[in-house]
Simulated assay, not measured.
Amino acid sequence: MARPVMIAPSVLPADFSKLGEEVAALEAAGVDLIQWDVMDGQFVPNLTFGPDVIRSARQHCSVPFEAHLMVHTPDVMAENYVDAGCSRLIVHAEACTHLHRTCGNINELGASAAVALNPATPVSAVEHVLDLIDLVLVMTVNPGFGGQAYISTMEPKIAEVRTMLEAAGRADDVHIEVDGGIGPTTIAGAAAAGANVLIAGSALYRDPEGLEHAVSDLRARAEAARS
C-alpha cells in the first residue's frame, strides 16, 4: 500500500519572533507535521534552532515535530531534541561515523530515527540501517540555506530509494522524504519518483493566497502525480 502524501513545512522562512503563532498557523493550514532545520554552523554554514526554542513552540500545536539535524554531533545532541518534543530525528549519513549506532541510540530515546542523504551521497549509505529507521530523506538541494533551487537530477535517486525499500520489504514501513526547492512546479516530479513526505518552506510562505491554499495545492499536485 502506497504511503500517504504528507506536507511538512520547514519553519526557516517563518517569523522567528513569534514561532508559537507561526506553528499554530501551520497546523490550522492543514500540514501533517513540522520540520525544524537544526544547523550547527559547522556541518552547514548556518545556525538555527536550539532545543529550548523548539520546546517553547511545542505547546502551541499538536502536529508531530521532526528535527533535521544538520550537525556534526547528532549523538551528543539527540536527547535534548527528543526532550524538546521532536518525535523523529533525522541525521545525515555524512556526519555519522557509526550510523547504525546513532540510529539505534535515537530509537532507544523513544524517537523514530531517519537518515538524510546529501545530493552527492549514494543510496547505498542507508542500505544497512533500513531496519532501524522509518524515513529516508533525499536532499534535493545542498543543505544549509532555505530558498535554493530544486535539483531535478535527484529524482532518479528518489526512485532508487523506492526500489531499495521494495527489495528489502520495507516499502510500507519507511517514508521517503524530499527537502529542497519543493513548490508547485517541482513537487510532482518528486512525488512521481516515489517521495511521499514533501518538505516545503519558501513556497508555502510566498503563496499570495495564504498558507491554507499553499498546503492544499501542494497536496493535490503530489497526489495527482502519484495516482
Rank of each mutant, 00 (worst) to 15 (best):
A120L: 09
R58V: 10
V126Q: 05
G30H: 00
C86K: 06
A113T: 03
G189K: 09
L47M: 15
T186Y: 02
K157Y: 05
V44Q: 11
P45I: 13
I90F: 04
H175L: 09
A203W: 00
V115H: 01
T48F: 08
V138R: 01
P156I: 14
R162D: 14
E66S: 00
S112E: 14
G146I: 08
A159N: 08
D172W: 12
L26D: 02
A168Y: 05
G183T: 07
D40Y: 05
S216E: 15
N196K: 02
A125E: 12
A113F: 05
T73V: 08
V215P: 04
D172Q: 14
I199R: 00
L130S: 06
P74L: 03
N196A: 07
A78Y: 01
M70P: 05
L12G: 03
T102H: 02
C61E: 06
K18R: 15
A195C: 07
L204D: 01
P156M: 11
A190G: 04
V76S: 13
T163R: 14
E94I: 09
Y205E: 10
N107T: 11
S112C: 08
R226E: 07
N118Q: 12
A2D: 10
V136R: 03
R3W: 09
V136Y: 02
M154S: 01
G194C: 04
P51H: 03
G50W: 08
E21C: 00
A93Y: 13
A167S: 13
M70Y: 08
T97E: 12
L204A: 03
A225K: 00
A14P: 08
V129N: 05
P74C: 04
A220T: 12
A222L: 08
A149Y: 09
P51C: 07
T73S: 13
S62L: 04
P74H: 00
D131I: 11
R88S: 00
L47T: 12
E212N: 10
T97K: 14
H175W: 10
P122S: 14
L137S: 09
A113V: 04
P64F: 09
A8W: 01
A114R: 04
S112K: 15
V129C: 08
I199Q: 02
A57G: 10
N107L: 14
P156G: 11
H92A: 10
E27H: 00
N142D: 12
E127M: 12
N196H: 06
A222I: 11
D172M: 12
F145T: 10
F65L: 10
V174Q: 01
